[in-house]
Simulated assay, not measured.
Amino acid sequence: MSEKIDFRFDKKAEKYDDSYEGKLSEKFYTLVTENVQLKDGMQVLEMGCGTGTILHRLSQKCSISGRGVDVEEKMLEQARKKCPDMEILNCSCDNTPFEDGKFDVIVACMAYHHFPDKDGFSKECARILKQGGRLYIADPKLPLPIRKVLNTALDIHKINGRVYTADEMAENFSGYGFRKAYDKHDAYAQLVCLERE
């Protein structure tokens, strides 16, 4: 079976924030920024950080120790400009260099549906998140018929990606020591908050 391909963002990196996709992401950014609970000094990691917009906005709310990881080097170049005092690394989200139990908060905004190894991502989050820490996932919220057609089309064309409901996402993490704290949505955007037990 051939390996699935993924959407590439390297050619869009410099103009991503001002592009149609960047503007479409604004609803997700707002949902995350308004709902992630932070305190000064917290260790915060964004998985699939892209251009660093979320990290930058969260750092405006609180004095955090922020880090970001992504596999798109051109996007990371933008994130490093936006978040010059943060550690921004090129690595996959299922195999990071961080020590066990390092983070208070992990965020994945408009990234989860792209991750090729979702079980690996769940396992890695369980490893590096502190007990009682929170994982926030913001991803598209689509009606069932559209979700089924989209997921089928992605499978047929061997494109990496799958859109889940909030309950399905929570179920994906239940075997890794997470429970759903809550979920929120706004039109086509949803946010799931999972707590590490």
Rank of each mutant, 00 (worst) to 15 (best):
D104P: 06
R127C: 06
K61G: 04
D18L: 13
F121W: 03
S65R: 14
R67E: 11
D104W: 08
K123I: 06
G132D: 02
G132E: 07
K81M: 11
D17A: 12
C91G: 01
G101S: 09
K39D: 08
I54Q: 00
D117C: 02
G66M: 09
T51H: 03
R162F: 01
N172Q: 15
L154T: 04
I64F: 14
Y112R: 03
H56C: 09
P116T: 01
A189M: 07
M169T: 12
P97E: 03
E124C: 13
R8G: 08
I54T: 02
K102L: 14
T33C: 15
G50E: 00
L194H: 03
E168G: 09
K123A: 14
D183E: 10
Y182R: 05
G52T: 13
K39M: 11
E197M: 12
S174D: 14
A170R: 11
V163R: 04
A189K: 02
L129N: 05
L154V: 01
I128L: 12
I54E: 00
C49T: 08
C83Y: 09
Y182F: 15
V69I: 15
E197D: 12
F103K: 03
M110R: 08
G50P: 00
K130F: 13
K130V: 07
I106F: 11
E87M: 11
V107M: 03
S19T: 11
I88A: 08
G50D: 02
A13E: 10
C93E: 00
K141I: 07
N95V: 05
D104M: 05
Y29V: 07
T152A: 15
K148V: 08
L89V: 10
A13D: 07
M75V: 09
